[in-house]
């Protein structure tokens, strides 16, 4: 699979940065505006899927292989879990919001304690895992058995 035509490739080369930027914005501002780790992560996955669909399978080994994506998946869940454990050690409660925010820093980007950190972790996790599953689903080679091999055999078995 060598990918789609030149027009599609060029448009994707222009668009992929903006889609990625939008996804990162949605993840980072999840505690102030609509959005958050889930939707932002899916948007990031969509950006990579767009590149994958347009450029063909060859790009997978060069830019963003599925092994790297699998490791990012683990990194995301570890960030989330580490935030939870730090709350346990600092505040005594699992998932304690241990960074207290003053009232005047509300509605700023760096506010609300561990929520942005958790958002980043969730975004990495969702984006990477959905990209991996799409690559696996798209790249799987279907080996179709000959019809006479299987189905008739089983019918005979049943008889």
């Amino acid at each position: 699979m060598t990918g789609m035509s030149l027009i599609v490739k060029t448009v994707c080369r222009w668009l992929k940065g903006f889609i990625l930027l939008f996804g990162v914005y949605i993840v980072l501002y999840g505690h102030l505006t609509p959005g958050g780790g889930f939707s932002g992560g899916v948007i990031i996955a969509c950006a990579f899927i767009l590149i994958f669909l347009a450029e063909g399978k060859l790009v997978e080994t060069k830019i963003f292989s599925k092994n790297v994506a699998g490791e990012l998946d683990s990194v995301g869940i570890l960030i989330f879990w580490a935030a939870a454990l730090t709350g346990l050690f600092c505040g005594g409660v699992y998932f304690k919001n241990f960074i207290t925010t003053a009232a005047e820093s509300h509605f700023k980007l760096f506010s609300s304690g561990i929520i942005p950190i958790c958002n980043i972790g969730i975004g990495l996790k969702v984006g990477a895992s959905l990209f991996v599953v799409f690559v696996i689903l798209a790249a799987v080679k279907i080996v179709v058995p000959k019809k006479s091999d299987n189905i008739n055999d089983h019918e005979e078995d049943e008889k």
């Binding site: 939870a84 919001n97 509300h106 609300s112 929520i115």
Partner: peptide, 25 residues
């Protein structure tokens, strides 16, 4: 006041009921 997040859905998701989100992950 308690979580500092303006988006209350995120506040419920990642502060008040974060354990649920861990199970979801």
């Amino acid at each position: 006041a308690k979580s500092g997040a303006g988006n209350l859905v995120t506040a419920v998701l990642l502060d008040f009921r974060a354990f649920d989100t861990l199970g979801e992950a």
